[in-house]
Design a binder for these strands. Structure first.
Length: 426
RNA sequence: GUGGACGUAGCUCAGCUGGUAGAGCUCAGGAUUGUGACUCCUGCGGUCGAGGGUUCGAACCCCUUCGUCCACCCCA
């Protein structure tokens, strides 16, 4: 019988990996807390229409990447392919957006039926940040300053670069789009095959083409910049001033277009060159029209999402996972012989009471002294506490350093916690 | 959805022109009746991804299929 295994592109996160995830999540949480962002938790499943109406009917995500299925009562439901739509739905549904400003964040799995590759999976995890009710470029700048602080906290500054652009309001973008299509249509047969297809589906994406012939044609193409409305233009200029003032480095990439329909004005991406083809580690932008589009009052909004898998992949590639993240024991308590099992369990409890910040692992499962010592070593603990018949009889414990050549000491059990506190703290 | 590479022990891999499987690491035990890391010895561990075909004989050749990885598309 065939073995049942995980769904393609949906990965188990194993015990060796979870400490890294917790480290990244905790670091992000801490930075967001500093800026006063509030966490929101949404369901993983939403009505299919929510995504169709927000992401855009003709995007790849909606057309061919969604996990959509029928509920038992016939409703069409979809596993969320991204977080913004559900966040807007939840915030709107509970009156979080009316006449107020909000700074929200969330994390969790997202689902897209794509072919997996490095840094891209069918179930992947994002940390999303969304801000509502603020119209100016100052909040755009805050988001970028916040992410820059996060890169610093993760020691990723210098391995990520920021690209920004303004794609204008949907009206100005529409005008530009038709100008671009008009221009490119003259050369349609000279465009590469992908770009010919994009002419129908997503013409702005052609700006990004790597094909030499297409690039040549693009040289004389109309520029998005010339079609920007005045408000978008000044918004973008002000954003650049704010970033300059904050010392955030960036490049303006006129070809930077986001794939989701709801974006307008500011768009940005943090990119790394260390991950191969999937180098975008964080991306977002402004989406002032979305709340209204989903049935709410017009509400200014801007946000971004980070891919946790990509962040972790990057940290691992650059060998930036701090040492302490992977250690899963500080003290390992051995128990030699049946008679010392109960005292060992009791002694470990005593240590946990007095040293709540340290990880105390008790040896279970018996075995020779030698094998217990091996396990102590393997655990990564800095100290072994040795409890055998002699120690139990004398009310002491052996305190053995495992990471240095210092000699083992016999310590009265009552003084063991203090002795460990002294040696573990330096 | 398209293309390429690859599936042999828990992990990393070797296995020549077809002759029915090996190493290192890990794990368990021992050398050392209560002391890990280094060393040495012993042991556990494989329907060679699956199914079919060719052959006296297939891990190796052929077909099919499943899976993984990387890239394209697209995206975090």
């Amino acid at each position: 019988m065939a073995k049942i295994q995980a769904i393609r592109g949906m990965n188990d996160i194993l015990p060796e990996q979870t400490p890294v995830w917790q480290f990244v999540e905790a670091t992000v949480r801490q930075v967001l807390r500093q800026y006063g962002y509030q966490e929101i938790r949404m369901p993983i499943v939403e009505q299919t229409d929510l995504f169709k109406r927000s992401i855009g009917e003709v995007t790849d995500i909606v057309e061919k990447e969604m996990y959509t299925f029928e509920d038992r009562n016939g409703d069409s439901l979809t596993l969320r392919p991204e977080g913004t739509a559900g966040c807007v739905r939840a915030a709107e549904e509970h009156g979080l957006l009316f006449n107020q400003t909000r700074r929200l964040w969330y994390t969790g799995p997202m689902f897209r039926h794509e072919r997996p590759q490095k840094g891209r999976y069918r179930q992947f995890h994002q940390i999303g940040v969304e801000c509502f009710g603020m119209s100016g470029p100052d909040i755009d700048a805050e988001l970028l300053i916040l992410t820059a602080r996060l890169w610093q906290a993760l020691e990723l500054s210098g391995h990520t670069r920021l690209e920004i652009n303004s794609i204008g309001t949907s009206e100005s973008r529409k005008t530009y789009r038709s100008a671009l299509v008009d221009y490119l249509s003259q050369y349609k047969s000279d465009l590469d095959a992908d770009s010919q297809r994009r002419l129908e589906t997503n013409p702005l994406r052609i700006l990004d083409s790597k094909d030499a012939g297409t690039r040549k044609i693009l040289e004389n193409a109309p520029s998005l910049d010339d079609y920007l409305d005045e408000e978008s233009r000044s918004h973008f200029e002000r954003l650049r001033e704010l970033l300059d003032a904050a010392g955030i480095e960036y490049t303006v990439n006129p070809a930077l277009v986001r794939g989701l329909d709801y974006y307008g004005k500011t768009v940005f991406e943090w990119i790394t060159d260390s991950l191969g083809a999937q180098g975008t580690v964080c991306a977002g932008g402004r989406y002032d029209g979305l709340v209204e589009q989903l049935g709410g009052k017009p509400t200014f909004a801007v946000g971004f999402a980070m891919g946790i898998e990509r962040l972790i992949l990057l940290l691992e590639t650059l060998d930036l996972i701090p040492e302490h993240v992977n250690s899963n024991a500080d003290v390992y308590v051995t128990a030699m012989g049946d008679a010392s099992v109960a005292p060992a369990l009791a002694l470990a409890e005593q240590l946990r009471n007095e040293l709540p910040d340290y990880v105390v692992v008790t040896h279970c499962g018996g075995g020779s002294f030698k094998s217990q010592m091996k396990k102590a070593d393997k655990s990564g603990a800095r100290y072994a506490v040795i409890l055998g018949e002699n120690e139990v009889a004398g009310g002491t414990a052996g305190l053995k350093p495992l990471r240095s050549d210092e000699p083992q000491k016999e310590v009265p059990q009552a003084e063991l916690a203090q002795a460990l506190a002294d040696v573990l703290s330096n």
